Every structure is written in C-alpha cells, then in structure tokens.
Amino acid sequence: MFHSFGRYLLLLKLSFKKPEKFSVYWAEVMREMVSVGIGSLGIICIISVFIGAVAVIQVAFQLSSPLVPKSIAGSIARDSTILEFSPTISALVLAGRVGSSIASQIGTMRVTEQIDALEIMGVNAPGYLISPKVIAGLLMFPMLNVVSILLGLTGGYGACAASNDISTSQYIYGLRDAFNSLTLQTSVVKSIVFGFIITSVCAYQGFYTSGGALEVGQSATKGVVYSCIAVLFADLVITRMLL
C-alpha cells in the first residue's frame, strides 16, 4: 500500500515538471477541458434537475407538521444541494464517465507501447499525458458543480410548481432565507479536491497498466472504485474541517 502511494506521489511530481514546450501542453489542456467539461455537461444537467426535484419532494413529505413553515423546505433543499448533492453525487458520476475514460486511454497507450515511444523520444510522458487531465479536472469540476447547483435549485422550483405541497413563492423565500456563503465556499473546495482525486487516481491506474486489453479494463475499474472511495473519504474530511 505504501509502495503504491509512493509511486503515486512520484508520478504526480513527474507530471508537473516544467514542460518542454508550453504551447503543446496548453493545447492538450484545452482539449481535455472540452472533453471533461462540455462532454460531461449533459449527464450533469439531467442528474442535477432530478436530484433537486426529489430533494424538495422528500423534504416536503417529512415536514407535515403545521407548526413548521413550509418555506424551510427551500432552505433544507438549498443547503443539501449545495453542500452534498451537487459536489459529491456529481463527482461520483464523473468518476464513472471521466475517470474510466482517463484510465482506459492511458492504459491503452501503455499496453500498446506508445508511452514507451514517448519516453524514448525524450518526452516527459507523465507531464504530457497526466498534467493536462489533472489541470482540466481542477478547472472544470468547480464549473460543473456551479451548473449542477443552479439546475438542482431549478429542479426544486419545478417540483414545487408541479405539486401543491409547497408554493413556488414559499420555496423561493426558503432559498433566500438565512443563506450562508460558507456552504458555497465549501462546495467549491469539495469540487476542486474531487476533480484532482478522480483525474490523478485514474491516470495513475492507467499509467501503470501492464498486460493487454483485459488489464486495461481492470485498470479502469480500479480507477473508478478507488477514486470513488477517496472522494467519499475526502468529503468527510472537508466537511469536518470547514463546517
């Protein structure tokens, strides 16, 4: 375990060495940002709208007491969406989409000896293959998280408009009531950390793949599983530290 963690840290160190040609790395970063951000936007939008709607419906179902103002459903759904649903559930979904793609892509290059060819030509393979993906994750995950929050709250509004449990005016009042900016800051920190974990862990699994096509699939599976576990652990640590 400690040997694997040491190799992981060494790979990260090699990944962020000074690039040989900045323009080439910059083009790779832009390409990865499009792949991670634009490519994941559809699934994030769909998930966020439904999660936001379900959150409001469930809170409204539990707040059946006439002594509790119905507007509090908006506050609870807002904080739950910002703190947990958008950053964490989106990260777990992106681990399956983005993480498996990264691990299988780099793993395929390893087993077909393309990485060996890069190293023979004097190219810093970890820097060329891994750092653009990690940087794209650090930049695009927070943006996707913000989009997820907005769509989640919009989905909650749609659920209120489609039912008679909570009026839309009560929901909007609950969204505005006692908002603490710390929740949004915590959510952004979570998304940045999750983006780094998913991209780096899956890249590590792909980079050290050995064998053939079967092992590439196994590396992709390990990358998704390990990154999901690391995301949940980081979620606990960040929540405890910041809240």
Rank of each mutant, 00 (worst) to 15 (best):
230 A>L: 15
184 L>N: 00
229 I>R: 03
182 L>K: 12
187 S>N: 11
128 Y>K: 13
169 S>W: 08
208 Y>N: 09
112 T>C: 07
243 L>G: 10
166 I>F: 04
108 T>H: 10
212 G>M: 08
177 D>Y: 15
136 A>Q: 04
5 F>W: 12
208 Y>V: 09
171 Y>F: 12
113 E>L: 10
214 L>H: 14
71 S>Y: 14
170 Q>S: 15
176 R>V: 08
222 K>Y: 06
210 S>V: 12
179 F>V: 12
44 I>N: 06
50 F>V: 11
224 V>N: 05
96 G>Q: 04
126 P>G: 11
196 F>Y: 07
59 V>S: 04
193 V>F: 01
49 V>C: 08
53 A>Y: 07
213 A>C: 06
237 V>G: 02
134 V>G: 06
205 Q>L: 11
57 I>T: 13
121 M>C: 12
216 V>S: 08
1 M>W: 10
52 G>Y: 04
137 G>L: 06
223 G>C: 09
225 V>K: 03
142 P>G: 01
104 S>M: 11
214 L>I: 15
239 T>I: 08
186 T>G: 11
169 S>Q: 15
242 L>H: 06
97 R>P: 09
170 Q>W: 01
12 L>K: 00
190 K>D: 03
195 G>A: 08
193 V>C: 13
191 S>T: 10
116 D>H: 09
156 G>Q: 02
146 V>M: 11
165 D>S: 14
170 Q>P: 02
240 R>T: 13
14 L>T: 08
231 V>W: 04
127 G>L: 11
169 S>A: 13
179 F>H: 05
4 S>I: 11
139 L>G: 02
49 V>N: 05
167 S>P: 04
243 L>P: 05
91 A>Y: 01
226 Y>K: 15
9 L>N: 03
215 E>H: 10
69 P>D: 07
22 F>S: 13
92 L>E: 01
70 K>F: 00
241 M>Q: 11
52 G>F: 04
